[in-house]
Write a protein that binds this DNA or RNA. Sequence first.
DNA 1: TACTTTTAGTGGACAAACGCAACTATTCTG
DNA 2: CAGAATAGTTGCGTTTGTCCACTAAAAGTA
Lengths: 164, 164
Amino acid sequence: MPVKKNKGPPYPVETVGLDVLEDTLSFYIRSINIALSRDLDERLEGLDVARGTGKITTLLLVDSHPGIRPSVIAQLIMRDRSAMGRLVDQMIDHDLITRRNAPDDGRAQELHITKKGADLARKVRKIATKQSSDFFAGVPEKDQKRLLDILRRVYRRTAGLDQQ
Amino acid sequence: MPVKKNKGPPYPVETVGLDVLEDTLSFYIRSINIALSRDLDERLEGLDVARGTGKITTLLLVDSHPGIRPSVIAQLIMRDRSAMGRLVDQMIDHDLITRRNAPDDGRAQELHITKKGADLARKVRKIATKQSSDFFAGVPEKDQKRLLDILRRVYRRTAGLDQQ
DNA sequence: TACTTTTAGTGGACAAACGCAACTATTCTG
DNA sequence: CAGAATAGTTGCGTTTGTCCACTAAAAGTA
């Protein structure tokens, strides 16, 4: 129970305990996600790929897996197909990728990178990596790896990528 | 370069490499955040606090820090004041908290929990904690602590809670 | 005390994003 | 061939959040 001083907020930001959230995954993940997204947006300033809402992942995946299908990406970024479709539309408008019908499956499409997209992908890779290490500043190399390992495991399980 | 089989997606989900993102904080954070939010929404089903977009944090903070100000919470959950104001409106509508003018500062407000809010807070604490440990299933206790430590540090720095 | 600046909160306009549901076309299953 | 599953599209509605302008009060300054 903090004693209220004569002025200033009764619970100054720096000292507010986060209650249970202090030990909770979701709170940190959510907050850090916000911070990370904003930061990334800044770093991507003017790069045609603003709002990292899946655009980045899509760009890199299409670049490294020519012919990959929208629905596959959708699953990886945990969006539904309609959202994915719109995302693809945007990126085509920006001339980052192309869409063609899959020759062997009349329902499906194949995505391919454009010249412009490939150039951008190169830049984005640098930026994303840089951001990651910036945020990890002060955290020992070993812990970084460990953390990524854990997150990777949680992610794969969550996205249903591991066995069943 | 995967050899295309006669049918099935050329890049089946399970085997798609995530490119640089494989080693990148932002990707996992973003994805896990989505998963976590959805999962939390399910667990909060019908609990008047759907869409965990800050409502949960607000609820718990008001509960454990009677008289806390909206602007303080806003900073903690990284939203601007107008968004925060609307959030408070909602929660008042749901009879979870109350708002009164701060006696010592004509600009500010104090938030207090209601009976209903306190009851809910109790439930939410259980749920949030449970969720966290569920997601950590299979991760050794020690690593969990480690991970939370790192996230906490990153969060505090990011939210500007430390020094400076 | 008069001024300027900063802080707290409000309200409106606006846009982006996402999910759901419905629908088509294909392919698979048996 | 009939029925189920899959890929993608479209419309709709909702939510969410940001930007901006505005008021009121407090703090800083001279």
